[in-house]
Amino acid sequence: MSEVMVKKKNNTVNKASKREENSFGLQKEKANHIIEVNDLNLWYGSDQALYEVNMDVPEKQVTAIIGPSGCGKSTFLKTLNRMVEMVPVVKTSGSIKYRDQEIFNRKYKQEYLRTKVGMVFQKPNPFPKSVYDNVAYGPRIHGIKKKEILDQIVEKSLKGAAIWDELKDRLHENAYGLSGGQQQRVCIARALAVEPDVILMDEPTSALDPISTAKVEELVQELKEKYSIIIVTHNMQQAARISDKTAFFLNGELIEFADTDHLFQNPQDKRTEDYITGRFG
């Protein structure tokens, strides 16, 4: 709690541009940028979707990405684990470094990247298998077959996703029978099972009811102790509630990236201000 207070102070003092700000008050995080994005451009065929994005994602914090729909925030998120390349016409330029390694490097394997940078999707998307098989999916495809170990991983992951108590007696039921909120937390558990470094969340609560949303938000707060989280949200209140830093995207450009309190209370850019005060959206 006190740390947050300190941050707040720093933020209010510092009104310099976003790049300088990073080096000003938050030196500790500066040393620990888990993902560094430099001059990222992205095209769907001939339509450019991202323009010269520069952004350093801090480790073990929650980074929120906000912006009106179509602003490129989901595209940006999916670029971070190269899921965006599932669309065949996508082209990129620039650099993304995960722990100082260039992920666009030809020798760098997508599969390896994705075990480190996990993802939770907009709509809960469990496989039509049992809860157990869903969570064990990741470890299994990476060659972990021993039942005792898988048992432990499943338990640990479900506990990590705060759903163990609800589901410990229903591990072998089909995940399709669960409620939407439960499904989404199983999907989070599934992402946790390979113990990734970073978890990307693409509007994870947009398909959920308010109670489930609250549970997921609470979970995000717990998870940041061990994981770096980047969360896309269309809900500004949510970004303000759960994130440490917030990035505002508009028309494929990163307009502003700052500590969350700072960005909401003291936006540097007119467009950010217009957006968070609800003048468009």
């Binding site: 999707f121 469990p126 496989f127 999916y137 599934r190 390979v194």
Partner: peptide, 9 residues
Amino acid sequence: EASYGMGAT
């Protein structure tokens, strides 16, 4: 997507 997102080939 879920599968690819887990690093599956």
